[in-house]
């Protein structure tokens, strides 16, 4: 079987700092990583390949040329093939436009049985591209997948809810989006790293995937960024005085009482 895994290269948002003078993001020196949920998506595909060695795992992403590095990491983890969709015409796409481009890339790959993606990317946190791509491909989706079993021509998955989970049965092909509870992603292997060094990442442009140019890129995107800004820092509070833990606790409770908070 052929499994396609959709991944994204993201800045490690836990490393981002704000310049307090200008209120802007400091992105210099912030490392780019494989989006965490996408690593769980790839791991699930690789586990299927472990159990069924004739499985082909193809990783696909959309992004600038430097996203190749992340794809090589995916090959080093065990992916068979990696494709980068890269073209200025695709730049500035919102989730709708991105899903049009990625769906076109997936179609160009050819027949497939299953598509995995991460639930959401940590830079935008939208969780929209997976379902929107499924819609553009006309196949069913399950999001927030935390448990997965392949049974012949269908899969049984557990989909996490806020207060429990659902058990769902879906026929192939379908799109599944992974959360971190699904598995623990493997590290790159030494043979994998050697393979990745030799293997060429395929780069496809908009013409290669035959996507309608009126459905991709900044201009075609139905949503636009109107303004971006940072929240104003809150006014400073007070340091609770006291020499001992007891005194500090007493002063806190007294202050809360005085302000009629308790």
């Amino acid at each position: 079987m052929r499994i396609i895994v959709c991944v994204k290269q993201v800045p490690d948002t836990t490393e981002i700092k704000i310049n307090p003078e200008t209120g802007t993001l400091i992105r210099d020196g912030v490392p780019s990583i494989l989006n965490p949920d996408d690593a769980n998506a790839l791991e699930q595909a690789l586990q299927i390949k472990d159990a069924n060695p004739d499985t082909e795992v193809v990783v696909i992403t959309m992004g600038p040329p430097q996203a190749k590095e992340m794809l090589q990491e995916c090959i080093a983890m065990g992916a068979d093939d990696a494709i980068l969709l890269s073209d200025r015409a695709l730049g500035g796409s919102d989730t709708w436009a991105t899903s049009n481009a990625v769906a076109a890339g997936v179609k160009k790959v050819g027949d497939f049985d299953l598509i995995f993606a991460g639930r959401q990317a940590i830079d935008g946190d939208t969780a929209q591209v997976g379902p929107q791509m499924a819609e553009k491909l006309g196949i069913p989706q399950v999001t927030y997948v935390k448990d997965f079993t392949l049974e012949g021509d269908h899969v049984i998955v557990k989909r996490a809810l806020e207060d429990g989970y659902e058990v769902l049965k879906v026929k192939l092909p379908c799109v599944l989006t992974a959360i971190k509870e699904l598995n623990t992603p493997r590290y790159m292997s030494v043979p994998g790293i050697l393979k990745a060094a030799k293997q060429e990442v395929k780069v496809w442009n908009a013409a290669d995937i035959g996507v309608d140019l009126t459905t991709v890129g900044l201009k075609a995107s139905p949503t636009n960024v109107f303004k971006s800004f940072t929240p104003k820092p809150k006014g400073a509070g007070i340091a609770v005085a006291g020499d001992t833990a007891k005194e500090k606790a007493e002063n806190l409770v007294a202050a809360l009482k005085e302000k009629h908070i308790i």
Binding site: I18, L25, V225, K227, S228, F229
Partner: peptide
Amino acid sequence: AFGGNLMA
């Protein structure tokens, strides 16, 4: 966005 670092 960006983990709450930025608003849009």
